[in-house]
Each structure stands twice: as structure tokens, then as C-alpha cells.
Design a protein around this nucleic acid. Structure first.
Lengths: 214, 214
DNA sequence: GTCAACGTTTTTGTATACAAAATTAAAAAA
DNA sequence: TTTTTTAATTTTGTATACAAAAACGTTGAC
């Protein structure tokens, strides 16, 4: 049945964020083919807005289009991951620096809260919870940077980076210590220290990936 | 008449680049409404691939979607441009550094050639020619960086073209001196120097824009 | 002459239709 | 059995159809 009521302001945008979220939540996993009718059915839309949403996601490296074959959740090779890290290694420290300079007191309080209210990451779904926490932490810093373009860019890179990360190559406890250091520098308003701490954090992640490949 | 032959590998991509070119060449001007049937007719496609192309362009900030109103060519504000510059200031030095480390001898020769074969930028269309030259110079360094994501990112955000658009009286000669310094460092394989020189160059451009706003 | 109300036309948003390509399944050959 | 061929099915790419919203024009009131 064809319904001609306009439910949302922008269906393409809605579909786009829903798929993005599904990728972050690992309901859609790297390498998986996105069969259009299936996804469309699941989201209750037709293929027209879906195509537009896929095209947006493609620009963020979240999905890959293989002509005449379809769209796939992007699966990063080792090299791809390192390329992405090279970029994150430059951009996230910038974000942290700006966050220290420009973040509002209330934002700083929220950041503090994210750190202190971190749940327990042991247990069966601990890794998933950690991914979620990690994403939230990084995102909120980018938002604090007051550079909306940077925020959007980093958000998508982090999603694809996280979704391609193997569960066994993360070490929550180490990351949490880094996070705390970064947050402290930002809250203090020490831009240089925040930048450096973030750079360190990303570099460690990069090294872990590099080691894991051997 | 409905033709069901597949002419191109990817029509969305083709339409996207055609519109992008029209915008960058100012055949479509900021603020202009992109009436779908009209553009579709002009490009000989239907509105389905057009919507996807618009959605991609929206992610690059080249067009803006106003729900139920349509798509409009977007004009970047001064602030937006500075946000982009902040990003560019981090990414292009990275590209220059990697180019110095990883660029092949033949690529270095080509870069040398771009510098030495620079045309005369005086005269009526000198500005256009300079933009073209500038774009080629920066792009080829990004390609030399061997990081395809970085290359695509810089290209897709049109960071280079957009930064220039703004300047009515750029000082070619200063830029050309910078370019020469950057190229020399890259050719020598001095990564650190290349990085620094590029950072300097971008920062100068940024300052020019900033001053221009007052 | 300005403005409001109403009808007409255009344009958008989204579903659907359908040819061609890709995939899968089935049948035939080695 | 394994491989190859061929037919059936699914899926993609893109045009088209059509309801709802927006834009435009016209008439009539003030």
C-alpha cells in the first residue's frame, strides 16, 4: 500500500543515519552486501531514498559501491586502516586542541561525566559496550571543537574504524587511562597537552593494529 | 523513450561529477535553485540518479537541501571556509611529508615540471590559469602521498578550489615561491622540511582569507 | 493600487515498473 | 562425480507515475 503522507522532513537523511547506526552497532558488518529490497523493507522505505542514502554513506567510506553488484559495508584492509589512522592522527589532536580552547563549561562537565560514568567492560558484551563508549568519548570531544566539518568527518571515520576493529585487538584499560588524561587536559583548558595526549592515544591504537597484523 | 542500455559504469557518479564541475566553473551559481527536471533534462537522465548525486554533493557542502523546497547551490560562509582551512592545515602537510618519503622519482620529476613549466599569470585570464596551476600542484602532491583516502578527501572537499574562490587579488608570485620551496623539499626527500613548508604555505593562505573578511 | 482568497501549474518526494545484468539452480555433458 | 550449459530467479539501475506541497496567477474585495 502506497502512503502519500509526508512523515519526516527528510527521508534520505533519516535512512542514512539509520544505516550508519546499524553499522556502528554491528548489525551490518564489514563485507556484508546491502541488498536493497531487504534494507528498504526493514526500514519501511522504497529503494529511491535508499540509493541516495547509500551514495552519502559511500562518500564517508562507510559503504562501497561495486557497479552492477551493489553496495557493501566497507571492509578495510590493513593498509586502509593505516591510511585512515594517518588521517585521524592529524585530525583528532586538532579536535582535542580546539576542544580545550573552545569547549564550554557544561560540555566539559559532560565529558567528565562520560569518563566517570563509564560502565564495566568485563563480561560478554563488554567489547560492544566499549566501542559505544569510545565512540561517544571521541565524538563529544569533536563536537566541543566547534568545527562542525571536523566533527562530521571524524564521526564517520571513527565508525568505520571501530566497525573494522577486531574485538581482540583492543585493550580497554589502557584506552581508559588515555581517555582520562585527554579529558583532564581538555577540562583544564590546556590545549597543547590535550593535543599531545590525543596524538599519543591514536598512535597507540595505530601501533596495536600494526602489531596485530603480524 | 526509455532506453535500457547501460551506457556508463555508474550514472550517479557521472552526474555527480558533471554537476560538481558546473558548480566549480560557476555555471551554476551560489543561491541558484537546482530544478530537478531541468538539470535532469540537461544531463539526459532521470531524477532518480540525480537525487543520489545531489545527496553526495550535499555532503561536500556544494549544495544544500531545503526539505520540500529543493536543492540549492551552496555558498560557503567565511566561517565554513576557515573550518575547512583548519582541516587543510593538518592534512596537506601530512600529504607533503608522505610525498617526500614515498614519492617515486618519476613523480618527483613531474612535480619539478609542473613548477618549471608554470605559465605566465599576468594578463586577463591569469587568475583562472593560476587556480588551475595551484590545483594541479596540490593535487599531484596528494597523489604522491600514496594515501588514497587522503587524496580523495582533499579532492572531494574541494578544499583547494574553494579556498581560492574567494580571493580577488591573490599574490601569485608569493605562492609560486612557496610552491618552489615545497617542491624542492619533496624532491630532496626531506619530509620534515616539506611538511613545514606546506604548513607555512597553507597558513599564509588562511591568513589572507581571514584578513579579507575585515 | 494593494492584498487576500482561490484555482491552476509546477515541483518535490517517494513508490513502483521494468529492462538488463548478476546470481542461483537445474539439467546435461564429460 | 565434477564440470559445463542453460534456464529460472533475484537484484540492480534507472525511468516513470502519482500524491502532496509549493509556487504562481488571477480575480475580486477593500
Amino acid at each position: 500500500m502506497k502512503s502519500y503522507k509526508i512523515e519526516t522532513a527528510d527521508l534520505v537523511e533519516k535512512v542514512y543515519s539509520e544505516i550508519k547506526e546499524m553499522i556502528l552497532k554491528r548489525e551490518l558488518v564489514p563485507g556484508q552486501k546491502l541488498v536493497q529490497e531487504e534494507i528498504a523493507g526493514r526500514l519501511g522505505v522504497s529503494r529511491t531514498p535508499l540509493l541516495a542514502a547509500f551514495s552519502k554513506l559511500e562518500k564517508e567510506y562507510l559503504v562501497e559501491s561495486i557497479p552492477r553488484r551493489g553496495f557493501y559495508v566497507n571492509e578495510l584492509s590493513m593498509e586502509d586502516k593505516l591510511y585512515l589512522f594517518d588521517i585521524r592522527l592529524r585530525l583528532e589532536p586538532l579536535g582535542a586542541m580546539r576542544a580545550a580552547e573552545l569547549g564550554s563549561p557544561s560540555e566539559k562537565k559532560d565529558l567528565e561525566k562520560i569518563i566517570s560514568k563509564a560502565p564495566d567492560f568485563n563480561g560478554p558484551d563488554g567489547k560492544i559496550k566499549f566501542f559505544d563508549h569510545d565512540f561517544k568519548f571521541h565524538s563529544s570531544i569533536m563536537i566541543m571543537s566547534r568545527n562542525p566539518m571536523l566533527t562530521k568527518m571524524i564521526a564517520s571515520y571513527n565508525i568505520i574504524s571501530l566497525s573494522n576493529q577486531h574485538e581482540d585487538d583492543i585493550d580497554c584499560s589502557v584506552s581508559l587511562v588515555h581517555h582520562k588524561e585527554i579529558a583532564e587536559a581538555i577540562i583544564k583548558g590546556n590545549a597543547e597537552q590535550a593535543e599531545k595526549a590525543m596524538e599519543d592515544h591514536i598512535r597507540k591504537g595505530m601501533n596495536r593494529i600494526r602489531e596485530h597484523s603480524r
